[in-house]
Write a protein that binds this DNA or RNA. Structure first.
Lengths: 329, 329
DNA sequence: CTCGGGCGTGTAAACGATTACAAGAACGAT
DNA sequence: ATCGTTCTTGTAATCGTTTACACGCCCGAG
């Protein structure tokens, strides 16, 4: 017994398929018609086929959110915000993960052009010409949470990393720390590059030199295991800014292993202000780059573009704030 | 300029739609035919429509993984394992979140019956008759990661919580702790109930009485904020078993705030052995309930069922192990 | 009593792909 | 030269919906 179709329902109810479709979609019908169809639907356990429906109406009522790494808690913050907006608008949100390679992102964007979903919200970690081209060519609306050249011609919502870095450094300096180190993620990524630049500028604003620099191969806890010892070869720092919370937490483990106290010996500040920041011990001072707001705004832009694909792309930047916790004095 | 269709490609190439479809699907064709079609496809930037294709072939080549809370790190472990298996089999994995309410799960299962995906892997946190019925009625294959009555007639893969609890208690006892408390999640959930029962049995096996009990309203860090103080009203315990890692980490914060040292004053063991367990400080001894293996096995069952929907449902249970870290002496 | 206007319903044509079937071309064997 | 294979290609049916259009009915106005 395979799935009943609308034709089966029509037969069972003794009416036409058009009538079934109409009552199912709430179009006007007589009392009796409605009743007969409802009965037949219930009896057969009919559920309309989403594939056929979306083929006809040209919409799936699904939106896709693509993130690089589900293990990165910053994405759960963003995901929650996006989910809220899109489900309020009557869409289902599905999440898919791309991995750190740009080719995966390109493949995803191209796949999306096939109409799996009505829109794509992507937060690319690496960007190259192929990705820009794929985004331009994509038939379904795309909005990017992050940085992408404006010639991609899409709505973007990005963070202000330099400003965030400045908040971090300001804070550290105000607490008397001047020998500040930086633990970055891969510099060949968009956020990695932005944060490196931001850090340099922030130090310059205070007339400081970096006390130490290290670069993890990934924005993950595991990668900090390798990179943090690199940093610790230098001992001349009393504070470390980290490119995200995972790296910061990883670093704190290494500091503890080296017998250094946080924040007394070394202050640590993370970035993203994810759930991990408050879960860590000591709770982590972290730059809030507005992930939730970015998610929300991005989702709104996506919905707006689905309504009207002709509107000129907007580029929103959301401002950071600092969540001060106990990892800084 | 809207999306080119296969008909447009056929016209541009001067061949029939059937031929276009054939070369696109790698069926035999002459050199020249292949060439002409390829050229037209490239020129028009044609991408086949997934909706139309899946309507015809009856497959979407998408699988859905539904989890209750993306913020729970146990799901990222599971998700990674699932992703690996399904992508190796040529499917795309999409993740969707249900929330803690059973009605959301029911809605999701029913929605899935509409053919959004070729299969559903769900890890329900609460189970009621409606959910069982929805699963029975669902036209697309479902496999459950967790417990569900066998009358649901689906493949299941579940953990062995009682055994896990026993590992935890054995371990604590072997380290000389006998006044053991338990911080559970909501007892009206499937894992909550299983873990409560398991804890009671494990203590009984050692002829011990629970030193204290508390129940969080959710398996979240935030919920532990409320529940842990409840536990701390009792002071007669030297160890706490927690129903998952998030609760354990939350508890450790409260213990620290109360001036108690982990593990010297109180040993803490979590459950799930998620990434958070190694990220926490001190690193958390945690019962590994085999999330990765459960994910892998569940994905394999789902794929097998898609191949052959007639096979009799299997019920797999994976055995736990203990990851000992520094939160226990 | 007749005619026009609503209103409700049914028939059939889409949507964009895959694929069964038929027809034509090419080729070798007799 | 004829016939039968085999191979390629095209035509058209199909998947399960939605919806434009036409039809018939009922009702009130003239």
């Amino acid at each position: 017994m395979s799935r009943p179709t609308i034709a089966g329902v029509a037969r069972a109810a003794g009416v036409s398929v058009a009538s079934v479709s109409r009552v199912l979609n709430g179009l006007p019908a007589t009392e009796e018609m409605t009743e007969r169809v409802r009965r037949a639907v219930a009896e057969l356990g009919y559920v309309p086929d989403a594939r056929a429906r979306s083929l006809k109406v040209g919409r799936t009522f699904q939106l896709t959110l693509a993130v690089a790494d589900v293990g990165n808690p910053v994405y759960v913050t963003m995901m929650r915000a996006v989910e809220e907006v899109v489900s309020a608008a009557g869409y289902r949100l599905v999440v898919t993960t791309t991995g750190p390679e740009v080719v995966d992102e390109v493949a995803l964007v191209q796949g999306m052009a096939r109409g799996y979903a009505d829109g794509l919200l992507i937060s690319p970690i690496r960007v190259d010409e192929d990705l820009v081209k794929a985004i331009r060519a994509c038939e379904v609306p795309v909005v990017v949470a992050g940085s992408v050249p404006s010639r991609a011609g899409v709505d973007t919502v990005r963070a202000n990393s330099p400003k965030g870095m400045l908040l971090a450094v300001d804070h550290l300096v105000s607490r008397g720390r001047t020998r500040i180190a930086f633990l970055n993620g891969p510099a060949d990524t968009v956020p990695g590059a932005a944060r490196a630049k931001g850090f340099a500028e922030a130090l310059k604003a205070h007339d400081l030199e970096p006390a130490a620099l290290a670069e993890a191969s990934d924005f993950t806890f595991a990668a900090s295991r390798i990179a943090a010892p690199e940093l610790l070869k230098n001992s001349g720092f009393d504070a470390v800014v980290c490119a995200n919370d995972l790296l910061a937490v990883g670093l704190m483990h290494q500091l503890a292993a080296a017998g250094l106290d946080v924040p007394d010996d070394v202050a640590v500040v993370g970035m993203d202000d994810s759930e991990l920041a408050e879960q860590s011990f000591p709770p982590l001072t972290s730059v809030n780059l507005g992930s939730a707001e970015r998610g929300r705004r991005a989702a709104e832009l996506l919905l707006a573009r689905i309504e009207d694909n002709e509107r000129t792309p907007r580029r929103i930047v959301v401002q950071p704030s600092l969540s001060i916790r106990r990892s800084t004095p």
